[in-house]
Every structure is written in structure tokens, then in C-alpha cells.
Simulated assay, not measured.
Amino acid sequence: MADGAGKGGDASGGPPAKVSSVLFLCGMNAIRSPIAEALARSVLPQTVYIASAGVRQGRRDPFVDAVLAERGLSLGDRQPQRFEDLEDGYFDLIVTMAPEAHHAALDATGTASVEVEFWPMPDPSVVTGSREQILEAYRDVLKRIEQRIERRFGR
């Protein structure tokens, strides 16, 4: 599917429907999806259930904590979790941030009435160089996710 396309989208091309639950899904729930979860929690109403997960088990990434702290955000004691281990499997919207996550979401949702959107995001963990260069890659991903959240949810 094209960037931003999803199952169950508004065929009229109008604004996206309001959602009551959102899952952000990426490879290991260590970088992109937890950043998205933290950002979404900071802007969406508390009535919206927000979660994140990965298709594989990951480890918490200290650079994520650093760039979120720069924004006054925190993951608290939250640890990465796998998509298949989620207690609540129903979401109005699943936002995938990596090709493998997108395929997993489409396979898992089948014919269910859930919107799946693909927001491809680079993996900043592949960047090498100084600590500042690596942090800049993480900040860039945070900004990209923030812009997508603003566009999608009208913030």
C-alpha cells in the first residue's frame, strides 16, 4: 500500500475518522513505536487508548529516553513488548512504521474492520558517528513522527 494508505480508510478523501484506540507497531518496539506512543499520549485526549508494540522482542534504547527527555516526555518504566503478547488486540487504528510490522498487522487483522496505516520511518540505530550525530538521527525520527501525528490527528 502507498504511504498513509490503509484498510478501512475514508474513500471520499475526507479527513480521517476519529479513533478511540491506536497501536503503533514497528520492528522491536524499542525506538520508533515507543516514540510515537509517547508523542501521541502528549497530544491526544486521555480518552484515546494508545499502545505500542514490536513484531520481535527488543530492548529499551537509551537514545530514545534522551530525545524524549529533551521534549519533557518519558516512557517511565515501560519495556518493549511484542505484538503477539498484547492483552488487548483490538484497535481502531494500527500505525506501522516498518515494512515487517506492516505485513504483520495486515496478516493479523485479516478482514477485521480496523484501519492500518503505513508510516515508513528510518531506523536511527543504524547511524554511526559521534554521540551527537547519533542523537541527531533520533531527533530527526522524532520530528518525522511528530509531523505525521500532527497531520493524522489534526494537532
Rank of each mutant, 00 (worst) to 15 (best):
P122Y: 07
V55Y: 07
F63V: 02
D107M: 05
L25A: 02
D77Y: 05
G129L: 09
L75R: 02
G8N: 06
K7V: 07
V55H: 09
A105E: 02
S33F: 03
I31W: 01
L86F: 13
G8H: 09
Y90C: 07
Q46G: 15
F153T: 07
H103I: 05
R59G: 02
L68M: 13
R71D: 01
M1F: 09
G14I: 06
V64Y: 00
V141F: 13
I145T: 11
R152Y: 04
Q133P: 02
V141K: 10
E37K: 08
L93P: 03
T128K: 12
G154Q: 14
H102P: 00
R82E: 04
A2K: 14
G9C: 07
S21Q: 10
A36V: 12
A51Q: 10
R60S: 09
Q46K: 14
I50G: 07
S12C: 15
K7C: 10
Q81F: 06
L44P: 01
V67C: 04
H102M: 00
D85C: 14
V114G: 00
V64S: 02
P16E: 12
S113P: 10
Q46P: 14
P80M: 01
S42A: 03
D92P: 11
G72S: 00
A2D: 15
P122T: 06
R78H: 13
H103W: 01
D3P: 15
R71G: 05
W119R: 05
D85M: 12
G13H: 12
V22M: 15
Q79P: 08
V48L: 11
I31M: 02
D92E: 09
L68I: 05
G6H: 14
A38C: 06
L86S: 02
V126P: 01
Q57A: 15
G9L: 09
V43M: 14
E146V: 10
G154R: 06
A17Q: 13
G6F: 14
E84G: 08
R144A: 12
G58S: 10
R144L: 05
G72D: 00
V127A: 14
R131C: 12
M28V: 01
G72Y: 01
E150C: 02
G6R: 15
V95K: 00
T96C: 05
L75H: 05
A105D: 01
F24L: 05
A36R: 12
S12P: 07
S125W: 07
G6I: 04
L23I: 07
S113A: 12
V127L: 09
E146R: 04
D85S: 15
D123F: 01
Y138R: 03
D92Q: 08
L68E: 05
L25D: 00
S33R: 01
K18L: 14
E100Y: 01
A2R: 15
V141R: 09
R59H: 09
S74E: 13
L142P: 06
R59L: 13
I50W: 04
I94F: 02
I149N: 04
F24R: 08
E87A: 13
I149Q: 05
R82V: 14
L39A: 09
P34K: 01
P99E: 11
G13D: 03
P45D: 11
E136V: 07
A98Y: 11
R82M: 11
R71N: 03
P34L: 01
V48E: 15
P15Q: 15
R148S: 08
K143V: 10
F91W: 07
